[in-house]
Computed example of a mutant assay.
Amino acid sequence: MESILTINNLTKKFGYLTAVKDLSFTIKKGNVYGILGPNGSGKSTTLGVVLNVVNKTSGDFHWFDGKISTHDALKKVGAIIERPNFYPYMSGYQNLKLVCKIKGVNYSKIEEKLKIVGLLERKDSKFKTFSLGMKQRLAIASALLNDPEILILDEPTNGLDPQGIHQIREIIKQIAAKGTTILLASHLLDEVEKVCTHVVVLRKGKKLYSGRVDEMISSNGFFELKCNNQEALVTLLERHNSFSKIKVENDLVTAFLTEPMRSDDFNKYLFEKGIILTHLIQRKESLEEQFLQLTDNQTNQI
C-alpha cells in the first residue's frame, strides 16, 4: 500500500521544551489516522512540521514515498489547523471563490464540495450568520476544493455542540469512504474510536502506541470481581500467569487478562481455591481504558 506520509525520528524543541521527541510513524493511503493525546502532547506541533509551518529540530519526514518535494506534495494536501478564517460579510460561496483563485481551482468544484458538507442550501448566506459548526464545515469544503489525497484536521470538533460534533464526524466518514486519506489530531478518545482506523498515541511528545484502533482495543479484556475474601483473591490473582495487572478500588477488584479465559472456567477455578465470588463481570477494554493504561505505565516509568 502506498505511503502518503513517513515521519522518521522527528524532534522539535522550543528552547528548553521538547514538544516532539524522536517520533516515527507512517500513514498509508486510504486510512483514517488519529493522533491522540492530551493538550500539550505534541499533536499540533507534529502537524505544523509536516505542513512546513513549523521548523523541525531534527529527524525528517517525506510525502508520497519521497518521490516529490514537500512544496509540490503540499499541493495534494488539504488542511485545517486553525480556526476557520473567512470574510464575515461575504457569502459561503464567495469565500470559496477566493480560495479557488488562490489554489488555481475551477469554480465548478464549489457546489460539489458544499454539498458534501451539507451547506449547499446556505451557499448565499453571509459567513457571519453561520454557526460554529457551519463555519467548520465550510472550512472542510475549502480544504477539499483541490481534491486532496490527504485531508489533515486539527481538533475538528473542538467547541462544537453534540449535533455539530455528530455532523463533522459523519462528514469525515463520508470523505474517507470515497478514498481520501485522513489525518486528524484529537484529545477525544471517543472521536478516535468512532472515526479512525489507525491511531498514534502521544504523551509529552513521545509515541506510546502506533497501530490499528481495533487491535489496540482487541485485548483479552478483564474481570470485575467481588468476593468474601478480597485479600486472598488478590494474592491468588497476582500469582496467576493469566493476569497482567490487578487493580483494587474499595470492594471491587479488576483483573486484566493476558490470554483468553471463560468466566465460568474462572469462577470454577476460584471456587476450587475456596474463594466465593459475589460479583463477576467480564468486559472488553475500551480505547479509553487502553489509553489510561498506556499513560499510566508511562507515568510509572518517569
Rank of each mutant, 00 (worst) to 15 (best):
I7L: 10
N9R: 09
K13M: 13
T26P: 11
I27N: 05
L36T: 02
K43Y: 12
T45F: 08
V54N: 13
S58C: 09
I68V: 07
D72W: 01
L74C: 04
L74D: 04
A79N: 08
I80M: 14
M90K: 12
Q94W: 09
N106A: 10
I110A: 04
E112A: 03
L114S: 00
V117M: 10
E121N: 14
D124H: 10
S125W: 11
Q136V: 01
L138S: 03
L138R: 06
L138I: 06
L144Y: 01
L153W: 04
P156R: 00
T157G: 09
T157Q: 07
L160A: 05
G164E: 01
H166Y: 15
Q167A: 15
I168S: 05
R169T: 01
Q174S: 14
K178N: 10
T180R: 04
T181H: 09
A185W: 08
L188C: 06
E191R: 01
V200H: 08
K204R: 09
K204W: 04
K207H: 08
S210P: 07
D214I: 09
G221W: 05
F222T: 03
F223P: 02
L225V: 02
C227S: 15
V234W: 13
L237R: 02
R239F: 10
R239D: 14
R239V: 08
V253C: 08
V253W: 13
A255K: 06
L257M: 13
D265I: 11
K268I: 06
L270Y: 07
E272W: 14
T278E: 11
Q290F: 15
Q293D: 12
I302V: 14
I302G: 15
